[in-house]
Design a protein around this nucleic acid. Structure first.
Lengths: 144, 144
DNA sequence: GGCGAAAATGCTACTATGTTGCACAATCAT
DNA sequence: ATGATTGTGCAACATAGTAGCATTTTCGCC
């Protein structure tokens, strides 16, 4: 078993934020990195179970909050009341999300430029823009 | 006291959807019409209390659901887990929302054209786009 | 390698938001 | 006015997220 710092992507990402390398954080981050779509707490928790990682619901909440605060991950609210989480792959969360109204999944569209040079009414200070596209994903779309 | 159908905007709007004119629906719709921003269940409930309208939490949920289904109102999920509701003033909900990160309020920016002629990766069927801008509203912005 | 401080975890309990089923009351057509 | 239909109100439930605190784990330091 390797006891040196094998420097997995997840570990170095955590260390870069000044956080401690713990089982839970590494596992959660690996799950997020491996996922192509945004995941809910539930889904991440299930993935942790699959990995055999002991965890707690509360710990998962706190871990995800920490990841979001550190800028590693980002959270978003879907149509249901469950927040979804994903890794902020490139740069800040300046990318769009696609929400499939049929299967409920949310994927990140990294290649999209929001182009939100919109004319704000006045007095509004724009910090960031979040673009959510609704429709059918390829999987659901071709089935219908 | 007027007993004919004085046709308040709220009443005619409800009747146009084939719904019955009830105290709760009229009151809720009036609150929504009077509000410049999106409201949560809590806020609407408080407004109903102010009006002296007896109501129930569940009734409020169902009334709002009905309004959304009828296309009169629209709901959206904010950063917190509370859904917010507003009237769909002009056309469908093809307008942007501004979310103030300081006071948490959400206003509708009707004058904005999302311009989401984005290049979807492939296989994705776009139904509608939701643009949420984050930042500081005029009230919070000038104070800082 | 061991030691101690600081941080993360895990547990229980709690709050908030939203939902379901059923009895009762209000609405609307006749 | 009368009766079917629809909306309301109540109670209980379900799910998502939070708070406090004791225990364990990580990590800097010797």
């Amino acid at each position: 078993m390797p006891q040196t710092h094998p420097a997995t992507p997840a570990e170095s990402l955590i260390a870069a934020q000044g956080g401690r390398i713990t089982r839970t954080r590494v596992a959660v981050l690996e799950v997020l990195l491996a996922a192509e779509q945004s995941l809910t707490h539930d889904e991440i928790g299930a993935a942790l179970d699959d990995k055999g990682i002991k965890h707690d619901r509360v710990t998962l909440y706190r871990t995800l909050d920490w990841l979001v605060e550190s800028g590693v991950a980002h959270k978003m609210a879907g149509d249901d009341r469950a927040r979804r989480f994903g890794v902020a792959a490139s740069g800040p969360h300046e990318h769009a999300h696609f929400h499939c109204d049929r299967c409920g999944k949310v994927v990140c569209l990294e290649g999209l430029q929001p182009a939100v040079a919109v004319n704000l009414p006045g007095g509004y200070q724009l910090d960031r823009a979040e673009l959510v596209l609704h429709g059918a994903c390829p999987t659901c779309g071709k089935g219908a």
